Amino acid sequence: MPSSDLHTILVVEDDDIVRMLMVDVLEELEFKVIEADGWDPAIAALAGDQAIDLLVTDVGLGDAKERTGLDLAQQAMILRPGIPVLIASGYGNTLTLPDGAKLLSKPFSIDTLRDTVQDSLASIRTTSV
């Protein structure tokens, strides 16, 4: 049962197939999705004036400048204070996440993606009320 309330999610993933699957699932759940395949398009979206309610980023961005999803999360929190961040990773608990970011462990199911996204968006509503 979708409960997106027209939230916009920025999905950053350098693997085209994984990004496409995530976008398809989120759009089916009636979220508006902005896609980025790496650092530069993600920063451009975050620096723009379009509403973004949640950042979902892979930890490994395949960026030649060796910037990671962890770096992106930190930059997102500077550009958009209070933005919730989900970092998708297969590295599990070995990562040190930026304050406020949550881990989305790979591989994840559609149900896990949905529940984690909805939980992250619910935290916005409870902290802004």
Rank of each mutant, 00 (worst) to 15 (best):
P81H: 08
Y91M: 10
S128M: 14
P84G: 04
K32H: 08
F108A: 07
G82W: 00
D111R: 15
H7S: 15
D40Q: 14
D53F: 00
K32N: 13
T116M: 05
D63Y: 05
V25M: 14
L55P: 02
A88D: 08
G90M: 07
K65T: 09
M77K: 12
S3T: 09
I34D: 10
H7G: 14
D49P: 04
G69A: 11
E28P: 00
L10M: 07
Q50W: 01
Q75W: 04
I87Q: 04
N93A: 13
I52P: 08
Q50T: 15
A88V: 05
I9G: 14
A122G: 08
P41D: 09
M22T: 07
L61A: 08
Q74W: 00
R19C: 03
E35G: 05
S4Q: 13
I78N: 05
T8Q: 11
V59L: 06
H7W: 00
L6D: 15
S128T: 13
Q74Y: 00
A44L: 10
V25G: 08
D37L: 03
D111F: 09
N93K: 14
V59W: 02
L95I: 10
D71T: 07
I34Q: 13
D71I: 05
T8D: 06
G69Q: 08
P98Y: 05
I83S: 05
P81F: 06
I83P: 02
M77Q: 13
D40W: 08
I87A: 08
K32S: 09
S120H: 01
T68S: 15
I83Q: 04
P107C: 15
I83M: 13
L21W: 09
A88H: 07
V11E: 14
F108C: 10
G92D: 07
E13Q: 13
R125N: 07
S120D: 04
D119S: 11
D49I: 04
D53P: 07
N93M: 06
L10E: 11
V117H: 05
V129Q: 11
W39V: 00
S105P: 07
E27D: 09
E66P: 00
R125C: 01
V59G: 02
F31M: 12
E66G: 06
D111V: 14
D24K: 15
V23A: 12
S109F: 07
L54D: 06
G90C: 12
R19T: 00
T127L: 12
V33M: 12
I83F: 02
I52M: 05
